[in-house]
Design a protein around this nucleic acid. Structure first.
Length: 920
RNA sequence: GCCGGUGUGGCGAAAUGGCAGACGCACAGGACUUAAAAUCCUGGGGCUAUAAAAAGCCGUGUGGGUUCGAGUCCCACCACCGGCACCA
């Protein structure tokens, strides 16, 4: 690679300071009760202060999956932003927790293990080492003493422990929270006192009841089976009928699976979004995913003399006001009543349709462009409001998994029903009158009810919201239906047929009646470690790989271990808690550490603290899944008294994607991937960090430009040359070509003689304080790009100073330090050594305060407009009165021609701001 | 289709309703140099005009509106990006 003269010796400076920070453990955070050594920079900054007396700031990155490909330029974007803020907060006097770790369970390592027959731990360790080296080379101020790895048995012991908490809890709807399973009340017929005699059989029933209430439960359900990956996938991991990972086709298959009852928390997951500081778009994505909708359940009687049991079909509708317009019903093809209601003459046709639907992939079934399909069952139902007989159809546009799996079809006012009715010639009636000018056919918005009256109830003339209320009340009174809330959110499919994941701490036994049942292993048996295998593939008969380990599988007491493993999300659901107390062997997190870092500890010396993680930065790809799952686990732990906040992440920011130089998404196939290692070699970590932040606002999508890196690199070069003596640098460069001890070479570089310990001039102070103000305010608002431009403005200005006052340059280095810490440290050291000034660690040097008094101007440039158009800029004393301002503006030679001969209608004078003359 | 975001020079971008384009890239001219690289200085939205200026007009996706004044607020569109997608 051809590059010109190195702007400054970053290749020596960066490793030097990284080593120094490591040796000093400069960024270590301390838990309550720990003693900070007196020579640690934190202790020097805050002498005689216990760490828990300092205000905390917990700043978190989404930890990476350490893939074999190494870091890409997207990772350091968020990491740099959080690092800048972590360093800024330390300078402001906060006690900062800024940790990093590895989300290291996952499919790629497992697939490599299948290929090579070597334990996935091996590739995992190699990849972690690569990631760690790369991340360290960027000079981030992580507290590496708290590093976590989800695949470490010391870590996943506690993942399994939390699973046991879920397993041993149930959701009490009366208290709206999770409670220990021992406190589960049983229905009267299962109460043991009442049935003291009947023991074994009763206990089996009680167990079945208990197991059906747990937050972690087993179900036989159709799941997405992916042949290519040899595992089931969660709904969220299936995209367009293919696996999100690898793009293999998936099919529906009924299997025994572990589920987590996240739906119990739907209401709270939704409501508590109001209490946290996330972007609107992110909250909206979560709301959509949870998908709350209010409506009513309504029962329709089946009109068929063959069914003597008075079968009813229950539907869910958000528009009970349109009940009079229900002209037919549709059941999902999988609905359990289909078989019973289908008439003899329709049976073969219905069966054929159901088989056809079952064959379809999800993609085909949800294809919107296609025409709706369905078939008549031969049966009829009675519309409960007008007693009309309406036909019952089955169609695949009704989903078995939402609501009750059945709908009342109102083709007049629902587009899907309208399409279906049009295709099959079903009656369409108007029951909502739209505002004038709209066609009622397929009108789905609010209007006025019409044609909606019976002998008992009339909605006619009512606006839609009132009509909903009235009919719902009527249905409830008649016992025909009730107000209901439905959610799109489904329970979380939590088991995978994989090797490289956390094994469940569960065993299976056989009951006295021969049916298998599950039981939790005792806490003392944790962690359950996956045994090494000769072959990491699933078994030939489709069992998970763990089933190959016969010795491990079968316990001496005859029970068998669960062979499923947990999904990758499990480890990432709580890692932010483990960081708080990463080496605690007695608990997943210690009480005091949790209360201090999550901000609920009583702390009179603290400033106002935020509950939970103060700032969490990561990509949008985790907008729903990880963030919803983690919130769910956190709420369960909260209910069980294990954590002290209801939400884990108080403020969350998504960084925007970085595109290739061609404006396209980076990908190997496009050949536009930028490797951070290459950038570091050529420009150094400081320039790389600075560029990532200078590109544009953090949340925006933006294209990479290596030319842009050169720009900020040149800026650092200018800053360097401002501080150092050019002659000595030339000597250094010559010495470097021959010298052996390169570390000592940096000492050859002398401070610029123009830097003197003198009082800054008022103009210099103004330049400095304008910079302090801008950088401080921009960091508070996370506007890194404009903060950097303020630093550039300062340097451009300071270059012109003949005498450079040391005090101003010291303050500048404190401002630069969060962005480009290595060069700032080096210059700080030189400056202090040359001038014999105090030599405290730059990373804990107090952030300068700007003095507004220094920014005050004597005279101001005031724009003068005529009819809002700029005509002149006049210089006036800063304290000019409005009358003086107006007079000065009107006497401007440039303004006169636009005013003369016209009537002045109005003059707007904003002191210190502008004058605008409105003429007619 | 629904929800969210974004549209400003050749490019990345900046602008509490008050001088549009800070800062940076690319570019052009100059200084230094035998020459180049690096560095330093200067210039710069478009159009009209001019020897050069001065000056004027136009300009923040499009069309309207509010206002003394709109990139910014309101209404209606268009384009691109992201998410959801037969959820009754």
């Amino acid at each position: 690679m051809a590059f010109g003269r190195r702007q400054y010796p970053f290749h020596l400076i960066e490793p030097k300071w990284q080593r120094q920070w490591d040796e000093q453990q400069a960024f270590r955070a301390w838990n309550p009760g720990e003693t900070v050594p007196a020579d640690h920079p934190l202790a020097q900054r805050h002498p005689n202060t216990k760490p828990e007396q300092l205000p905390k700031f917990y700043i978190l990155d989404m930890f990476p999956y350490p893939s074999g490909a190494g870091l890409h330029v997207g990772h350091p974007e968020g990491y740099t932003a959080t690092d800048i803020l972590a360093r800024y907060r330390r300078a402001c006097g906060y006690h900062v927790l800024h940790p990093m770790g590895w989300d290291a369970f996952g499919l790629p390592a497992e697939q490599y293990a299948i290929k090579t027959r070597q334990h996935p731990r091996k590739t995992t360790e190699q990849n972690v080492a690569t990631f760690k080296r790369q991340i360290k080379s960027l000079g981030f101020s992580y507290d590496w003493s708290r590093e976590v790895d989800t695949t470490d048995p010391k870590y996943f012991k506690w993942t399994q422990w939390i699973f046991l908490k879920l397993y041993n809890s149930w959701f009490n709807p009366a208290t709206n929270r999770a409670e220990p399973i021992e406190r589960l009340p049983y229905p009267a017929e299962l109460e043991s006192e009442a049935n003291a005699a009947a023991s074994a059989e009763l206990e089996t029933k009680r167990r079945a009841y208990r197991d059906s209430k747990r937050l972690a439960y087993v179900t036989e359900a159709p799941v997405w089976w992916c042949e290519g990956l040899g595992t089931v996938l969660a709904n969220e991991e299936v995209v367009d009928g293919k696996s999100e990972v690898g793009g293999f086709p998936v099919t529906r298959k009924p299997m025994r699976q572990w589920m987590l009852r996240i739906t119990a928390y739907a209401e709270r997951l939704l409501a508590d979004l109001e209490t946290i500081d996330w972007s609107d778009s992110l909250k909206e994505m979560q709301r959509n995913w949870i998908g709350r909708s209010e409506g009513a359940e309504v029962d329709f009687e089946i009109a068929d003399s063959r069914l003597t049991t008075g079968e009813r079909i229950r539907v869910f509708t958000t528009r009970p006001d349109t009940l009079f317009g229900a002209t037919y019903m549709v059941l999902a093809p999988e609905h359990k009543l289909v078989e019973r209601i289908t008439t003899a003459e329709r049976r073969s046709a219905v069966e054929a349709y159901r088989i056809e639907v079952a064959k379809k992939s999800d993609l085909e079934r949800t294809e919107l462009a296609k025409e709706k399909t369905g078939i008549f069952t031969g049966a009829h139902a009675i519309n409960p409001v007008n007693k009309e007989r309406i036909p019952i159809w089955i169609a695949d546009y009704v989903l078995i998994s939402y609501g009750t799996g059945a709908i009342m079809a109102v083709p007049g006012h629902d587009m899907r029903d309208f399409e279906f009715a049009t295709r099959f010639g079903l009656p369409i009636v108007e029951v909502v009158r739209p505002p004038a000018g709209n066609d009622w056919h397929g009108y789905v918005d609010d209007g006025t009810s019409v044609n909606s009256a019976s002998a008992e109830v009339s909605l006619n003339g009512l606006a839609t919201p009132e009509a909903k209320k009235k009919i719902t009340a009527w249905l409830e009174k008649k016992g025909l239906g009730k107000k209901t809330v439905n959610f799109k959110l489904r329970d979380w499919l939590f088991s995978r047929q994989r090797y490289w994941g956390e094994p469940f701490p569960i065993v299976w036994k056989t009951g006295s009646d021969g049916t298998p049942y599950h039981e939790a292993l005792p806490e003392a048996s944790l962690p359950v470690i996956p045994p090494p295998l000769d072959d990491y593939k699933p078994t030939p008969d489709g069992q998970p790989p763990l089933a190959r380990a016969k010795d491990w599988l079968n316990l001496p007491n005859g029970s068998k271990r669960e062979t499923n493993t947990m999904p990758q999300w499990a480890g990432s659901c709580w890692y932010y808690l483990r960081y708080l107390d990463a080496h605690n062997d007695g608990a997943y997190v210690g009480k005091n550490a949790e209360r201090y870092w999550m901000g609920t500890e009583e702390n009179p010396k603290s400033k106002k603290v935020t509950p939970g993680v103060d700032l969490y930065v990561g990509g949008t790809e985790h907008a729903v899944l990880h963030l919803l799952y983690a919130r769910f686990w956190h709420k369960v732990l909260f209910d069980l008294g294990q954590v002290s906040t209801a939400e884990p992440f108080y403020k969350l920011v998504n960084q925007g994607l970085i595109l290739g130089e061609d404006g396209q998404k980076m990908s190997k196939s496009r050949g536009n991937v930028i490797n951070p290692d290459d950038i570091l070699v050529e420009y150094g970590a400081d320039a790389f960090r600075l560029y990532e932040m200078f590109m544009g606002p953090l949340e925006m999508v933006k294209p990479w430009s290596t030319k842009g890196v050169e720009g900020v690199y040149r800026f650092l070069g200018r800053a360097w040359r401002l501080f150092v003596d050019e002659k000595s640098e030339t000597e250094f460069e010559q010495a470097e070509t021959t010298a052996e001890n390169r570390k000592e070479l940096l000492k050859l570089i002398q401070l610029n003689p123009a830097i003197k310990d003198t009082q800054p001039t008022p103009a210099q102070l103004k330049t400095l304080h304008a910079c302090i103000k801008k950088v401080t305010e921009d960091l508070d608002g996370m506007r890194f790009n404009t903060a950097i431009s303020a630093l550039m403005v300062f340097i451009n200005e300071a270059m012109t100073w003949e005498t450079k006052p040391a005090s101003a340059l010291r303050d500048f280095l404190i401002l630069l330090q969060p962005f480009s810490p290595h060069i700032a440290e080096e210059l700080w050291q030189k400056l202090n050594a040359a001038l014999n000034t105090s030599h405290s660690a730059l990373t804990y040097a107090a952030w300068p305060k700007f003095d507004p008094a220094l920014l005050v101007e004597d005279t101001l440039e005031i724009p003068v407009q005529v009819n809002g158009k700029l005509r002149d800029v006049i210089r006036v004393p800063a304290n000019a009165t409005p009358a003086e301002l107006e007079a000065a503006a009107r006497s401007s030679e440039k303004v006169k021609p636009f005013v003369e001969g016209k009537t002045i209608k109005k003059v707007i004078v904003l002191p210190r701001k502008l004058v605008n003359i409105a003429v007619g």
